[in-house]
């Protein structure tokens, strides 16, 4: 089964989803990512979905779960690169994901994580 690579970038983790995701792959990702957040003492997660052309409620829920789980582990998640058609469809589906942070691309997401840490003052990203 294919796996989604998790890359370490300084205090952050970068997850790039590139496959048409199998439900099981999504579940494995939750497992591995939470483990890596702890083992790497990561302070933020960038979830790059710019290659994903369909997000249904299952994948949407998984994204929301990843954000909530990493928050509990004191790492902020930013979802980056959502395609316009996917954003429009998610909203119509009824899944606006109000509690997740978003950015246009990986650069903007990185800036967002850095400024959040700075604002918190203690090296912890602010909500």
């Amino acid at each position: 089964m294919e796996r989604i690579p998790i890359l370490k970038m300084g205090p952050y983790l970068l997850v790039t989803i590139q496959v048409d995701m199998h439900d099981r792959v999504a579940m494995t990702l939750q497992d591995e990512l939470t483990q890596r957040i702890v083992s790497e003492r990561a302070r933020g997660v960038l979830l790059d979905i710019s290659s994903v052309d369909v997000v249904d409620s299952f994948i949407g829920r998984m994204i929301g779960n990843i954000a909530s789980m990493s928050r509990v582990l004191d790492a902020e998640t930013v979802v980056v690169g959502m395609r316009p058609a996917v954003a429009i469809t998610l909203v119509e589906l009824g899944l606006a994901l109000p509690s997740i942070r978003t950015a246009l691309n990986v650069d903007a997401g990185m800036t967002l994580l850095k400024s959040a840490r700075k604002m918190a003052g203690n090296g912890r990203p602010a909500r």
Binding site: V79, M82, P84, V86, V91, E92, A96, L97, G109
Partner: peptide
Amino acid sequence: MKTVAATRLMGA
């Protein structure tokens, strides 16, 4: 509100 929500999902 849908338009606002979709824009936010994109990161703006």
